[in-house]
């Protein structure tokens, strides 16, 4: 404390500043190096044909068309299941249980444990439950459902946070105006909680789209164009893994696929922050 009163920062302070700055620089540099490496090796292969044609020769040639479709389908299943379930659970946790109730505590604790479980465990669980027990086999549906289990904890916790940041004043004044609980929830609390939901979505989708271990066991390897949700489909991350580990001479296309994946992630991030800023602020004013 005293240091801040001195005209010149003391030695410790200078050291700490240097440390903090170099740590930040290191992190940024690592990311830039990674991105640069991928762009350097991958960019030359990216073309419209690469994005739309099926892979040939185990992925050494051709493109990633069916793989992109499978990835999107898996993501679609995952979100289609996880978002309604996640919002429902978050509403229950934030609005209908107290911090001290047994049910609320139990649910929150389970979610925290679940969000720390390694993805390979989810993969094995999905394989045993969705593929075998429910008989869905290696399919996009199994993969999407497994991913849904994986992202649910993140989604629920951040949506719940979103609900909790809504000032109590809104709830009180809504109740004082004789608004029903449902109306309050739908028109006041939910719009206000959407930013939290979006943050959860970004984190969840980021985790889902980059997932390999959980998908190898559930949606499988097949790199043909899927005909239905019950077909096996190869996700982009699985494709990258396969090209770089199992296919000699697949490196260049692995780099190109990784570049597509990174751009997809950046696009999702950007779109979400844009959504939060523009669309949401307008929406709230005009329910």
């Amino acid at each position: 404390m005293l240091n801040t009163l001195e005209p010149h920062p003391g030695g410790w302070e200078r050291l700490a500043t240097t440390f903090v700055w170099s740590a930040a620089a290191l992190v940024t540099a690592t990311f830039c190096w990674l991105l640069g490496d991928i762009i350097w090796h991958g960019l030359s292969h990216i073309s419209w044909a690469f994005l739309t044609t099926p892979p040939r020769n185990a992925g050494r040639e051709g493109g990633i068309g069916p793989i992109l479709v499978s990835t999107l389908l898996i993501l679609g299943v995952c979100l289609g299941v996880a978002v309604p379930l996640g919002v429902g659970t978050a509403v229950l946790l934030a609005e209908f249980t107290t911090d001290t109730s047994l049910f609320g505590r139990l649910t929150r604790r389970s979610l925290d444990v679940l969000s720390g479980v390694p993805s390979i465990v989810f993969g094995l669980f999905g394989n045993a439950f969705f593929c075998k027990t429910l008989g869905l086999g290696f399919s996009i549906l199994s993969g999407g459902l497994t991913l849904a289990c994986m992202v649910l904890p993140i989604l629920i916790r951040s949506t719940e946070e979103g609900f909790r940041t809504v000032p109590t004043g809104y709830r009180l004044s809504a109740a004082a105006l004789g608004l029903s609980r449902t109306t309050t929830l739908l028109y006041l609390l939910l719009p206000a909680a959407v930013p939290g939901l979006l943050v959860g979505l970004v984190l969840g989708v980021g985790r889902a789209i980059a997932e390999t271990a959980a998908l190898i066991f559930t949606s499988g390897y097949v790199d043909r164009m899927p005909q239905s949700l019950l077909d096996s489909g190869r996700a982009l991350s699985v494709h990258i893994f396969d090209l770089s580990m199992n296919v000699s001479g697949g490196d260049s296309h692995a780099y190109a696929s990784a570049l597509v994946l990174i751009f997809a992630l950046l696009a999702i991030n950007g779109a979400t922050s844009w959504l939060t800023k523009h669309w949401l602020s307008r929406r709230i004013v005009t329910v």
């Binding site: 000032p167 004043g169 809104y170 009180l172 004044s173 809504a174 109740a175 004082a176 105006l177 004789g178 608004l179 028109y187 006041l188 719009p191 206000a192 709230i284 004013v285 005009t286 329910v287």
Partner: peptide, 25 residues
């Protein structure tokens, strides 16, 4: 609560437009 209105210490309009604040209830 329709018969008994309440005004709070801290003004707390909803994060809506002026019109919607009245129209909504």
């Amino acid at each position: 609560r329709r018969r008994v209105g309440m005004i709070f210490q801290k003004p707390n309009p909803f994060p809506l437009s002026i019109r919607k604040n009245l129209e909504f209830p």
